[in-house]
Amino acid sequence: MNKIIYGLTFLLLLLCQILLANNISLWGMITPMVYIMFILVLPFHMSKSLVVLLGFAMGISVDLFTGVLGQHAAASVLIAFLRMPMIRIISTQIKFEEHLRPILWDMQFSWYFQYALYLTLIHHVVFFFLDAMSFQNFFLVFGIALLNVTATLLLIFIFQIIFYKASKRY
């Protein structure tokens, strides 16, 4: 059952990215990359290799729909790999209960905000510098990355609020 749910999440987020988010072009600068929410919502206890593989699958699927193969995939694999270390760094006071998932309603707001912010930031900065391939316009590229982080985070929070609810203890 869980597998089906995560499969559906994968498909829906991919469709949402290519049919909706890729169409957004605010001031020609902002195109949110909401598909990375898929990597954020994978359960805590999922095997690390599987998370990395799923991150790659998601990234390369999004890449198929844009110009150059590999950019989205490289950034997604990186955050899929850094997800567990990041969780360990952030969650100092939180007790991990078996039934909890890394979603907004299960965790404290500040925890989830940090979790989403750091991973999105890493993803976007890596992605935009992979595209620029130089530090010539460093501040410009970094600025655009930050603007996109804001947009992506906003969408992630909206999605979390609308489509997710707190897990039940079982």
């Binding site: 095997s47 690390k48 290799s49 998370v51 990395v52 593989l53 790659f56 990234g59 150059v68 193969l69 590999g70 950019q71 995939a73 490289a74 694999v77 990186l78 899929a80 790999f81 992979l130």
Partner: peptide
Amino acid sequence: NTHVFLFVALEIICMLFIYQS
């Protein structure tokens, strides 16, 4: 550490894709 090797391998694949573009 399978996931570490997997991570490195996949990143190399991505970089090859990008650099050979």
